[in-house]
């Protein structure tokens, strides 16, 4: 039996934490994900897996897995994915807050995103779409220039979304900036290592190093912000809200506040 999949938000913070959850936190994947609204809510999962695949594939792993998925009929592919406990568990840990069991969540369908990802693998540009049978080969492309190959494809897609008034967002899976910066610091300091202490380095190198350290700090702050946002997404605020209302009601403040909004 396939387990339940929840809806998650289309947000860079959520994706970063998702990839961390899959053990890809230092992701070197180079994928693009274009998410468009689709009324088949559950189908977001397949496309989302495409994004993760894209990242995986960028690693040089999982290609065979993906080809196997292509051989499955659509339904089987869906089951194969939903039977992957790890993927489901990490995915579901981003469950949107549910205040009550079986609660009707208004606007839920509107918020269902469907993800499509584009990845350069083995000299070809592929489109991975959860609603399609398997990867779609968009033609040959060089790894070094794949961004210019994918741009027109994405632009055409965006064009279509705009005509259909469909909300979409575009996210890129990029390397962990901290690793890139740390590597550059290593390269920079390695070259001048024979001068000994850091203070002996030329001023311009020192200021460049300082710049990069600041950028790493910024990056840490951003990741920290993502983590806090994710903790808030996962938190059940029902007890908080009830306590807040009880307190305001006890102080006779609740109804006047509601009244104020009514009169606006």
């Amino acid at each position: 039996m396939a387990g339940q999949w929840c809806l998650i938000e289309s947000d860079p913070g959520v994706f970063t934490e998702l990839l961390r959850g899959f053990g890809l936190y230092s992701g070197t994947g180079r994928g693009f994900a274009a998410g468009g609204r689709d009324d088949r809510g559950g189908c977001e999962v397949g496309g989302l897996i495409g994004v993760i695949f894209g990242t995986w594939l960028g690693y040089g792993g999982g290609w065979r897995w993906s080809l196997n998925a292509q051989e499955h009929p659509g339904l089987m592919k869906g089951l194969a994915l939903s039977n992957s406990d790890t993927i489901r568990e990490v995915h579901n840990s981003f469950s949107r807050q549910q205040l009550l069991e079986g609660e009707a969540t208004p606007g839920c369908r509107d918020d269902a995103f469907h993800f499509v990802s584009f990845v350069p693998i083995g000299g070809h540009l592929y489109e991975l779409d959860g609603l399609k049978e398997g990867p779609v080969d968009l033609g040959p492309c060089e790894l070094t220039s794949w961004l210019s190959a994918v741009r027109p494809v994405i632009e055409r897609r965006i064009q279509r979304f705009q005509e259909g008034e469909i909300r979409f967002n575009l996210m890129a899976v990029v390397s962990d900036r901290r690793l890139v910066l740390k590597k550059r610091i290593e390269d920079l300091t390695g070259v001048t290592m024979d001068t000994g202490e850091g203070s002996a380095w030329p001023t311009e190198i020192q200021s460049e190093l300082e710049q990069m350290r600041l950028q790493i700090e910024e990056e840490e702050k951003k990741l920290q912000r993502y983590r806090v946002e994710c903790a808030r997404r996962r938190h059940n605020f029902l007890p908080f809200i009830l306590e807040l209302l009880r307190m305001l009601a006890q102080q006779q403040r609740l109804l006047p506040l509601v009244q104020q909004v009514r009169e606006r």
Binding site: Q97, L99, L100, E103, A104, T105, P106, E229, R232, R233, H235, F237, L238, I241
Partner: peptide
């Protein structure tokens, strides 16, 4: 935070539907 605001909106909707 938007996350808390969203929780409040969901609570309001559930309240309005008589579930609470």
């Amino acid at each position: 935070s938007p996350q808390f605001q969203q929780a409040m909106s969901m609570f309001s909707a559930a309240l309005a539907s008589g579930q609470l």
